[in-house]
Design a protein around this nucleic acid. Structure first.
Length: 927
RNA sequence: GGGUGUUUAGCUCAGCUGGGAGAGCGACGGCCUUACAAGCCGUAGGUCGCAGGUUCGAUCCCUGCAACACCCACCA
């Protein structure tokens, strides 16, 4: 390490990572107990965002901690083929070159995707490296690599053989933009303003409504679907329509005869109380249709245009165009009673944004209830635990009402469904076409056609924990590392991924995929707003690590915009918020920030002010190390005479180690980071280093004392670096290599050093009391100085009074320290009865700390200061006294609590008395 | 419609089994004190969302309400 200048992350991070990776430091080693985390595989299309950086920081901290504890730690890494997302990206790129997927053809298109994957797929891996993530690259997997695909096919075939996968014609969510089915989870329900049309359907056969009308009125938000109506429904108990049940209406525009049926599904309070039933285009209507044996009339094509089952006038029209046309035609015919504005939830595809249609198609489904049941039990029984706990309720609520899962997608990129059709439409499922043939006894020359569809990407991700470890082979890695220890992921994919992993893994391995699920929040911008391209408030983690100037940042945020009109506003805001761009804070500072902000699964507002503070913290570590090394000596053997401060900092180090261990165990990364920050800055640097300076700089100090200080400095820093390493790996490695040889540690890497154990640093109450006393006195003097605006250059004289028996001895021990820490020229005790000269007073514990005023300050200011101080203390005292006068408190509160209040009351009273006497004497003097 | 979470200093958030309201950043005042101005010393600032209740005692437990956020759901 270079010992001049400030901490410069750029100078250390890249080369260290390369060195670790080349030395194979990330692979599991030794013979400790295994520990495993499976990475949530990023999509190959992804660029690293702050969410990844956050998640990886937490996982890396866990892995590094366990590795230091001697566990055989494996962080299994890899990427996901991200079926739809990837296909869309590549399609869009090809379209930009004027090539459509259709003209390319399936095989050529898939080849293009692979090509693209190979050329850019490692971007994300490089970015992960930049974060310091200690994943085992030698085991990197891809969900479409050969071995993993084998697992996918195996699972499909076995589920099919068990009857848990079936093919069926059902209403599914159809994305007309992508022309594929999608699962329930991939549909986002968005609230939008629409209209509710009240349409008259003429009654047939001379029937009349109760109030004599010759038509009934149905209410709908989607008039175009009337072309597929096959009934009209009312509630069975609705008296208005009792006589009409069993009668019929004529469907306007189409002329079809629709029966009027009675069904509980209808809400008599809503709309007109009459519902048109369209079994082919609405999930509810479909259920009603099934109950009443209604025909299904499908009026939409794959692109959601009106098809040939509709009257010629509307064929070929887009559904929204058809809606307008039909509304016009009905109005012209006098069949529209009225149109109301109406707020409704519109289903949209999460990838395309298109309005999704319930559409009747042949699809593959997983019969999920039998898989869900053990997955529910696993969480109920605590075999899988969610952290924080409340996410278990989210999980239960979803999985207990789970519906069959549509797993087929009408797309090209992905795992192709291992099913083949013979000339008669018979279905044959097998691991290979040959297996499918041989199982069914089909001749080699008989034509078989493989199903065109691919699997939902989450079908394969569900197998991630065991598929990456070699399943269906029974590999040593699978034996050793499965189940994994913890899954670290966001709440947004509990259903998509976490639940499905639990189901599939239990089914195929008989084990849970992980014992714990740590759910973290989402990273938002400094104001708590979700980051998005369109808002232009996104931050790239690499820009924070490496820095970026304002122009480049603006360019980045305004490039390839879907709403170019926003560009000017985004530019203005960006330049206002980042007039100088973003400084290169380095990976360690970013990681420390994430840990410090990771509390209890809450979303976090990412503010660069925070990272600046933690970059400064890294610099503090850097400088503390510089200081420590300045004083380090080779072969510093010999007698030592540790001071109270030496013993104190060791005692505090023990508390830090205990706090670190407890916090990591509870996944409280914020408390862990906070404890390190507090110890390193406010105990080690602010106090210990300052206390130790006199003995280190004093040539005449006893060698045994100086040596004790030098060694404690080194040993404490060395242990601190180990405790901090899981969060800030680069700087700690760099500093540790410089420090360790002096602390008797030889060579190697901090990655493989043991994490400090609390019991190696026992508590030392006596040393703690001594240093507390010192801190109290120094604090009192500094306070007087600050309040009285004394220049730090002027030395002051200090008088002490009271404070009990040990005070005298403590003064003897610490006088040189006091002189230095508080710039004191002389310090002495006053007898109990001795009246002080005019002074400024503070109370430290039971002792008065006084600085004579003469010529330094004015008495009026001191009186004002004392009044404030007295008021503050008196307020506390009044509250304590109130408690102590309360018989209920004395009778009911536990004895230790009462004793504590008494003690506190006495101390406060003493302090108030002392200050009041002081106030009085100042009054007499009059300044 | 159901559910969950949040509401604490100007901002972002801690506050673990009820018993003296904290941190970081920001603000204000003073300092280039030989590890560090990315620093040091000090100060100010809070009816702990509102209203009840339980308790000797409530930021913490219970009930209700409000605001915000998110999740789920088939009201055409």
């Amino acid at each position: 390490m270079k010992t001049d200048g400030a901490f410069d992350p750029q100078a250390i991070e890249r080369s260290l990572y390369r060195e670790w990776e080349e030395a194979g430091q990330f692979a599991p080693r030794g013979n400790g107990a295994p520990y495993c985390i499976a990475i949530p595989p990023p999509n190959v299309t992804d660029r690293l965002h702050l969410g990844h950086a956050f998640q990886h920081t937490l996982m890396d901290a866990l892995i590094r901690y366990q590795r230091m504890n001697g566990r055989r730690a494996l962080w299994q890494t890899g990427t996901d083929h991200a079926q739809i997302a990837t296909q869309m990206v590549v399609e869009r790129r090809l379209l930009a070159e004027g090539i459509s997927r259709q003209e390319l053809g399936r095989d050529a298109f898939v080849a293009k995707v692979w090509e693209w994957k190979h050329s850019t797929g490692s971007n994300i891996s490089q970015q992960i490296r930049r974060l310091g993530s200690s994943v085992d690259w030698s085991r990197e997997r891809f969900t479409m690599d050969e071995g993993f695909s084998k697992a996918v096919i195996e699972v499909f075939v076995r589920l099919y053989e068990e009857g848990l996968i079936y093919r069926g014609q059902r209403l599914v969510n159809w994305d007309p933009a992508l022309k594929t089915s999608i699962s329930d989870l991939e549909v986002e329900n968005v609230e939008e303003e629409g209209q509710l049309w009240h349409i008259r359907y003429p009654l047939l056969g001379g029937a009349r409504t109760a109030d004599g009308k010759d038509h009934i009125v149905v209410a709908t938000t989607r008039p175009e679907t009337m072309l597929g109506d096959t009934a009209v429904a009312v509630h069975p108990d609705d008296e208005r329509f009792q006589t009409l049940v069993g009668e019929a209406v004529e469907l306007p525009l189409v002329g079809r005869r629709l029966p009027i049926i009675a069904d509980d599904y209808v809400d008599p309070e809503f709309g007109s109380g009459c519902v048109k039933i369209t079994p082919a285009h609405d999930f509810n209507d479909n259920a009603v249709g099934a109950r009443h044996d209604l025909a299904l009339v499908n009026i939409l094509g794959a692109d959601a245009s009106i098809n040939a089952n509709a009257p010629p006038a509307y064929r070929g029209l887009d559904r929204f165009e058809a809606r307008q046309r039909i509304a016009q035609d009905l109005t012209a015919m006098g069949l529209v009673e009225r149109v109301d504005p109406h707020t409704m939830t519109v289903p949209r595809g999460d990838r395309s944004g298109a309005v999704v249609e319930p559409w009747l198609t042949d699809q593959w489904f997983v019969k999920i209830a039998p898989l869900a049941e053990p997955a529910i039990r696993a969480v109920e029984d605590g075999d899988v635990e969610f952290v924080p706990r409340q996410y278990e309720n989210v999980y239960f609520a979803w999985i207990r009402g789970i519906q069959d899962w549509c797993i087929s997608r009408q797309q090209w990129w992905g795992h192709r469904i291992p099913a083949w059709y013979d000339a008669d439409g018979g279905i044959h499922v097998g691991r290979t076409e040959a297996e499918a043939r041989s199982k069914a006894g089909i001749e080699a020359d008989a034509p078989l056609r493989q199903d065109d569809d691919v699997l939902d990407t989450w079908f394969s991700s569900a197998l991630w924990t065991f598929g990456t470890l070699g399943w269906p082979e029974r590999t040593p890695a699978l034996d050793e590392f499965h189940p994994t220890d913890v899954l670290v992921t966001g709440y947004d994919i509990i259903f998509f991924w976490v639940a499905r992993m639990i189901m599939m893994t239990l089914k195929f391995t008989g084990e849970v995929p992980f014992r714990k699920v740590y759910i973290h929040g989402m990273v938002r911008d400094a104001h708590g707003i979700k980051m998005s391209k369109t808002k232009g408030n996104g931050l790239d983690p690499l820009d924070i690590v490496q820095g970026i100037d304002a122009d480049a940042l603006v360019a980045k945020r305004t490039a390839n915009m879907t709403q170019p009109q926003m560009a000017a506003e985004i530019e203005a805001r960006t330049r206002r918020e980042y007039p100088d761009g973003i400084a290169a804070y380095g990976t360690d500072a970013l990681r420390f920030t994430f840990c410090a902000m990771a509390s209890r699964g809450r979303d976090l507002a990412f503010d660069l002010k925070r990272i600046e503070g933690y970059r400064n913290f890294c610099n503090k570590l850097w400088n503390a190390t510089k200081f420590t090394l300045m004083h380090a000596r080779r072969d510093d053997a010999g007698a030592t005479e540790p001071s109270a401060a030496d013993r104190w900092i060791r005692s505090r180090l023990g508390l830090l180690a205990a706090e670190a261990e407890r916090s990591i165990g509870n996944y409280r990364f914020d408390l862990y980071a906070g404890a390190i920050y507090e110890f390193a800055w406010h105990e080690f640097c602010d106090w210990y280093v300052e206390i130790v300076k006199p003995v280190l700089f004093d040539e005449t100090a006893p060698e045994a004392q100086a040596r004790a200080a030098r060694q404690t400095l080194l040993a404490t820093l060395e242990a601190l670096l180990r405790i901090a390493h899981p969060i800030v790996p680069f700087i700690t490695e760099t500093l540790w290599r410089a420090v360790a040889p002096h602390a008797g540690e030889q060579g190697g890497t901090i990655m493989r050093q043991p994490f400090p154990r609390p019991d190696a640093y026992p508590q030392d109450p006596e040393a703690e009391a001594a240093v507390d006393w010192l801190k109290g006195v120094v604090g009192a003097i500094r306070n007087i100085r600050g309040e009285m605006r004394l220049s730090p250059a002027t030395e002051v004289e200090v008088l002490l009074q009271g404070g009990g028996d040990e005070a005298g001895a403590r003064l003897v021990d610490t006088e040189p320290l006091l002189r230095r820490l508080a710039k004191v020229s002389a310090i002495r005790f006053l007898g109990a009865a001795e009246a002080p000269p005019p002074v400024s007073t503070q109370v430290a514990g039971e002792m008065k700390v006084m600085v004579p005023l003469a010529g330094l300050i004015d008495a009026a200011a001191e009186r004002a200061r004392l009044d404030r101080e007295i008021a503050k203390l008196a307020k506390d005292l009044a509250r304590v006294d109130g408690k102590l006068r309360n018989p209920g408190f004395l009778a009911n509160a536990p004895a230790p609590v009462v004793a504590k209040q008494r003690e506190r009351g006495a101390a406060l009273r003493q302090q108030v008395d002392a200050l009041e006497r002081q106030r009085q004497s100042l009054e007499e003097i009059r300044g």
